[in-house]
């Protein structure tokens, strides 16, 4: 297969890595420079935390202000190294989320540090530091604005041609005297563990509340029980494809489940997706663009005849896509 966009893709990759590296260095420089520049006008120690009343209630040595730079170096550094270690093109979806995340985090850290420095500036003791109020709102607002700018910056450049394997695979030979079915699963063991732990905790709190040991136990037990149900529901998915259509069943109980009739499916293919791209685990995105994300990796993507898409992370998605395409071809034939 020839890659008509190969040169431009490599250019986009290099430019994107360069730009994010420059942003990483710039933010780190600001986070180091600001505490140093104002070191002479800060009390020792400086107020670092404010209570609900707005009065400072915790302090730290001024040198600790440079810890912001350390946090940033770890966060941005590891993500950048992780991105640089990938091979080939950096897809637009990855760029968008990466740039938005780094933009937001960098702006937020700079803002929080600036607010802390400003509140302590010119005071002779940390307990007399000013109480920030609206500044917090500004910091969060600016962080989101910078994140949005990062998102826009990540959109620059072409989206790469889909890798070869996203094209529909070879058709499976269908025999009219045989009923073809494809069954596969995807499991997230950590979600099972999380669900079980949450369930056990919910049970303990409920028992404690029942015996009057902790009257407030119910208010803890209910959210934990909800977390357990959701955790278990997204811990595994069973996908089956039969001549009737595609069915997904969730969780260890295989309930709830959802079926997409075959006549609604136009074609299917395989795509690599990660929780970072789709915004987490579980059912992500709006109907028509949803992804059922159990674990990062190969996803079976189907396109509806109505134009929408549905993706589900599942093992051996290539065979599933091939069978769906074969069934769809037989229907239209």
């Amino acid at each position: 297969m020839t890659h008509p966009h190969r040169t431009s893709d490599t250019g986009v990759r290099a430019r994107f890595l360069l730009a994010t590296a420059a942003w990483t260095v710039l933010v780190a420089a600001v986070l180091v420079a600001v505490p140093l520049a104002f070191a002479g006008r800060l009390p020792d120690p400086v107020a670092s935390h404010w209570g609900p009343s707005g009065q400072p209630d915790r302090s730290m040595p001024p040198a600790a202000l440079t810890l912001f730079a350390l946090v940033w170096a770890v966060v941005a550094g590891t993500s950048l190294v992780g991105l640089a270690r990938t091979r080939g093109e950096i897809r637009r979806a990855t760029r968008v989320w990466f740039a938005a995340g780094l933009g937001w985090t960098g702006a937020f850290l700079i803002g929080v540090q600036a607010v802390t420095v400003a509140a302590n500036l010119g005071r002779d003791d940390w307990s007399r530091a000013a109480s920030p109020s609206w500044e917090i709102v500004v910091v969060v607002g600016v962080a989101f604005a910078v994140g949005a700018l990062g998102r826009l910056a990540g959109r620059l450049g072409p989206d790469d041609a889909p890798p070869e394997r996203e094209r529909p695979g070879p058709l499976i030979d269908l025999d009219t005297r045989k009923r073809p079915v494809w069954v596969s699963t995807a499991t997230a063991p950590w979600a099972v563990g999380l669900g079980v732990v949450a369930f056990a905790a919910a049970l303990s709190f409920a028992a404690a509340a029942l015996w009057g040991l902790a009257p407030a136990g119910w208010s803890t037990a209910l959210p934990l029980a909800l977390a357990a149900v959701i955790g278990l529901a997204v811990s595994s998915v069973s996908v089956r494809i039969a001549p009737e259509g595609l069915t997904m069943a969730f969780g260890p109980l295989r309930w709830p489940s959802r079926t997409v009739r075959l006549d609604r499916i136009e074609r299917a293919w395989v795509e690599w997706r990660s929780p970072v791209q789709v915004g987490g685990w579980g059912v992500r995105g709006l109907p028509g663009r949803a992804t059922v994300m159990i674990r990062g990796g190969d996803c079976l993507v189907v396109r509806y005849t109505s134009g929408g898409q549905l993706a589900v992370s599942v093992d051996d998605a290539e065979t599933g896509a091939a069978l769906l395409n074969a069934l769809a071809a037989r229907r239209t034939a």
């Binding site: 005297r177 045989k178 009923r179 596969s184 069978l323």
Partner: peptide
């Protein structure tokens, strides 16, 4: 896993 069940078996 792809299975073919024979309808006339």
């Amino acid at each position: 896993m792809l299975l073919m069940l024979d309808l006339n078996d």
